[in-house]
Design a protein around this nucleic acid. Structure first.
Lengths: 140, 140
DNA sequence: ACGTTGATGCAACTCAATTGCATTTATTTG
DNA sequence: CAAATAAATGCAATTGAGTTGCATCAACGT
């Protein structure tokens, strides 16, 4: 997946966010990433820039707060962001070994009978399938 | 839920873990807690003791590694532990507001059509239903 | 172009998680 | 039952993600 500069600017305008250079770059990195990325990983994807890490960090927060991105996983103590595509929620695979997070196809169906005080609180669901990724399995 | 001293010692012996005072205490706290607890929360439940926080921390790790406990949630950057009861996996509710994690009844069924390299990697599933807990809803 | 308001750079700080090492202690063994 | 041994603990220090204050700068609505 990728995103054009115009698409990115439109997306930001719709969310009342200013189209700054680092913000557009973060948006592009997230759009092109096959998996959710942590702050550190976003920095790596950006390569050498003269943008402050805190700026990238704040942009991830902003995008998340605006609903443009979301935190797909907190695994291994790291927030990993992905764009909030309209394609609904999909499950993720989380490697217990290296912590990598991969998107899985949305072929999961779930039904739940929920009662009590929590029922009205539930806003969304997060499904993580966990285990050792192919790489980590190979090492062992 | 609670646990007797004998049950705790047996459980530890089966896992080849020594029955030390802090370890038994951690086990008891986890057994009595209605929700998954973070390291900090375990310390709070223990009250004033002369055990080092690092000791409690390492005990949580040990119990997890031994399969006696598991990390039910990484929400809000904190690992929250619960005993790995035989009652299979149950979903959790995670409050986006305060980060509290609550156990939900295991009334969730899911089916998944999975192919490709990940299929063989999947060892277990984690389901989190997210939103604002009754307390946080009340504040807003 | 101009002003308002949001964004950035820099630096510092918080807090959970983690580790090294010397000492103590629960279990194993003779 | 005491010595041996491997694990657990206490203490102190470190890592690293996440977060924030503040002065400066720039996007964009008028």
């Amino acid at each position: 997946m990728s995103i054009t500069d115009d698409e990115a600017r439109t997306l930001l305008r719709e969310s009342a966010l200013r189209a700054t250079a680092p913000r557009l770059a973060v948006l592009r990195v997230l759009a092109e990433a096959p998996n959710p990325l942590s702050h550190t990983e976003v920095l790596e994807c950006l390569g050498k820039t003269d943008w402050d890490p805190a700026t990238i960090y704040r942009n991830l927060i902003k995008l998340r707060d605006a609903g443009v991105a979301l935190v797909a996983s907190h695994a291994h103590g790291m927030d990993r962001y992905e764009l909030a595509h309209g394609d609904g929620h999909h499950p993720h695979f989380v490697c217990e070994g290296c912590g990598r997070v991969a998107c899985l196809p949305a072929g999961l169906t779930a039904s739940m009978s929920m009662e009590g005080p929590w029922a009205t609180s539930i806003q969304n669901a997060m499904v993580q399938l966990r285990g050792e990724c192919p790489d980590c399995l190979a090492k062992a």
